[in-house]
Computed example of a mutant assay.
Amino acid sequence: MSTPTSTAAGTGQFSQRRGIRLGYQMPNFSHAASPRALFGSVIAQARAAEAAGFDAAFVMDHFYQLPGIGAATEPMLEAYTALGALATATERIQLSTLVTGNTYRNPAMLAKTVTTLDVISGGRAVLGIGAGWFELEHDAYGYEFGTFTQRFERLEEALQIIQPMLRGEHPSFEGEWYRTREALNEPRVRDDLPIMLGGGGERKTFALAARFADHLNIICNASDIPRKLDALHQRCAEIGRDPKTLETSFLVFGFIDADGDRARGLQRDLIERTEVEPQLDRHFVGDPDDVAEQIQRRVLDHGIDGVIVNMVGNGHEPGALESAGKALGPLVHRG
């Protein structure tokens, strides 16, 4: 592979904006009575999360539903179109994907897309990004999937273009996968739009997060968190970065209901309708206080800064996010 060259700065300056200690992910669009009614529910969830004190609302960047959540044929919205609409329907909450598949978009165009979302939202966009992994979508939509190594090569090149474009630079880049020539990115409302990487790879993902990211959303079993944080600290040490400048979060599958028995029923329902082995070590089940205790003990006590909660069973129900935010907010919003 050719050696990339770029006019971009090395690791750049990392964002000092308010972080994401409590996020809400919307992974399920199967609860609406019809496609016409669907987006009203999405708006209602984003507004409910905002009112409940969540820092950010996330949608997935997928075209088909994921095997661990439902059938591939279930509804799935295009991420950035949905986020642009949510920007006009909310006021304070940050907006992002969890996370953008790098393989689906040209990196310069992605920088332009997320910057436009930032303009529309008045400075509330976060770029969530990862290497991409869902082969079915690539095959169906005609995107090159490539090998594991190639996808991370592409992500590394993409970040060398995207980061300087978000910071107001005009990168010229010549790599194996991508090239730009003094790429402009205007208008922008700020030069510190945060970059969030998502994944659990201790060598490749964590090394890229140490170099380029403001935030790392760690995808793993809860029991693996101590090892993951040790690896992340090693990657930061290798480039001389203080790990305290890299915010971390953990993706939680939350089955939360005032009735703990119903919460356990929601978990059973998900397990029964999916075709893959459930990742039970990522499940947090019970009433809001029970789940708060589990998150504190299994996640936050190990040194993770915050959580992003996916309430696939009932996040769309009135009052669900209010009770979750009331229980979880005090764990992460301190001082």
Rank of each mutant, 00 (worst) to 15 (best):
M1T: 04
S2F: 06
T3G: 00
T11D: 03
T11P: 01
T11N: 02
Q13G: 07
F14N: 11
F14I: 12
S15H: 10
I20V: 15
Y24E: 09
Q25W: 07
M26F: 02
H31G: 10
S34W: 13
A37N: 11
L38S: 15
L38F: 07
F39M: 11
I43G: 00
I43A: 12
A44E: 14
Q45M: 14
A56Q: 07
Y64I: 01
Y64C: 06
L66I: 10
A71S: 15
A71P: 03
E74A: 15
M76K: 12
A82V: 10
R92C: 01
I93C: 05
Q94E: 11
L95S: 14
S96F: 05
T100H: 11
N102E: 04
N106S: 05
T116V: 02
S121M: 08
G122I: 01
G123D: 08
A125K: 03
G128K: 13
A131C: 04
W133I: 03
F134V: 05
H138W: 09
D139R: 15
A140Y: 04
Y141P: 08
E144W: 05
F145L: 05
G146C: 13
G146T: 13
T147H: 10
E153P: 03
E153Y: 01
R154P: 01
L155R: 07
E157H: 01
L159V: 03
Q163D: 10
R167I: 00
R167F: 00
H170T: 13
S172A: 08
F173Y: 15
E174D: 14
G175V: 05
E176S: 09
Y178A: 02
N185H: 00
E186Q: 08
R190Y: 03
D191G: 09
P194M: 14
I195E: 06
G201N: 12
E202K: 14
T205Q: 03
R211A: 00
A213R: 04
L216Q: 10
C220I: 02
A222R: 12
R227C: 01
L229Q: 12
A231G: 13
R235G: 06
E238C: 00
R241N: 09
R241Q: 07
D242R: 03
K244Q: 15
T245N: 05
T248H: 08
S249T: 15
S249D: 07
F250T: 09
F250N: 08
F253T: 09
G254C: 11
D257L: 02
G260H: 05
D261W: 00
R262E: 13
Q267D: 09
R268W: 00
L270A: 06
I271Q: 12
R273N: 04
E275A: 11
E275M: 06
E277L: 15
P278A: 09
D281I: 06
R282C: 11
G286I: 02
P288S: 07
P288D: 07
R297I: 02
D301T: 15
D301G: 15
I304A: 07
M311Y: 02
V312W: 04
P318D: 11
G319D: 04
G325M: 05
K326C: 01
L328S: 12
L328F: 13
L331Q: 13
